[in-house]
Simulated assay, not measured.
Amino acid sequence: MSKWSKEELGKIKAADDLHISPFREDGITNGTPTWIWSVVVEDDLYVRAYNGQSSSWYNAALQQKAGRITIAGLTKEVAFEPANDSINETIDNAYRKKYHNSPYLSPMISERSRSATIKLMPRG
């Protein structure tokens, strides 16, 4: 797996327009883009499913382990892996900082959403 560049992380950190498209079951075709929140923590990119583990994009991401994201003018092929639970508090704090004025913050740092946290890594 490759790493995010500092330039990419800077753009991603400042944007809130991430669209995620896990592959469909064929492993080739990208699914319908879903707009979600993202945060950068320790040079890594994380996302959470608002509806927790019942979210269709989340389940597709876990099953296919790859897809595409579009954010801040970037389109990247990515790999998905479940986040390590030990970093959830740090991710919560990043959500609090980035989205502090949003009425959707509480659900995004709830146990439901925390249980559906994914780390995104650039592919190739």
Rank of each mutant, 00 (worst) to 15 (best):
S2A: 13
S5Q: 11
D92Y: 02
N84L: 09
E25R: 13
E81L: 12
N93W: 08
L18C: 07
P103M: 08
R96H: 11
R123F: 15
E8I: 03
S106H: 12
V41I: 06
F23L: 09
E77W: 07
S21Q: 10
L120C: 11
P22Q: 12
I91S: 03
E89P: 03
E42W: 01
A116V: 08
P82D: 06
N51K: 13
R114F: 07
S115K: 12
I87G: 00
R123A: 15
I87M: 06
V47C: 07
D17S: 08
D16S: 13
S55D: 10
A83W: 00
E111L: 13
K76T: 05
P82H: 05
K65F: 13
K119N: 13
N101Q: 14
D16N: 14
K13G: 01
L105T: 02
V40E: 06
M121W: 14
H19I: 03
N101W: 14
S113K: 05
L9Q: 01
D17V: 11
P82C: 07
N101H: 15
A116G: 07
A79M: 11
S56K: 13
Y46C: 01
S38E: 13
P122K: 13
P103F: 09
F80K: 07
K97Q: 13
Y46I: 01
K98M: 12
T75D: 06
T34D: 07
Y99W: 07
V47S: 04
S5V: 08
W37D: 02
R96E: 11
I36E: 01
A94H: 02
I28V: 15
L120T: 05
V47D: 02
W37V: 02
Y104G: 04
E42P: 00
A66W: 05
K6E: 14
R123M: 15
I12Y: 02
V39C: 00
N30D: 10
W4F: 13
H19P: 00
R68H: 09
Y58F: 14
V39I: 04
L120E: 04
N88A: 09
A49V: 05
Y50C: 10
S86W: 05
K6T: 12
I118D: 01
K13Y: 04
M1T: 13
G10F: 04
N93D: 14
A61G: 08
A60W: 01
I118V: 15
I118N: 02
M1N: 09
A83G: 08
S86L: 11
T32C: 03
D16E: 12
W35E: 11
V47K: 02
D85T: 11
K3M: 10
V41D: 05
F23S: 00
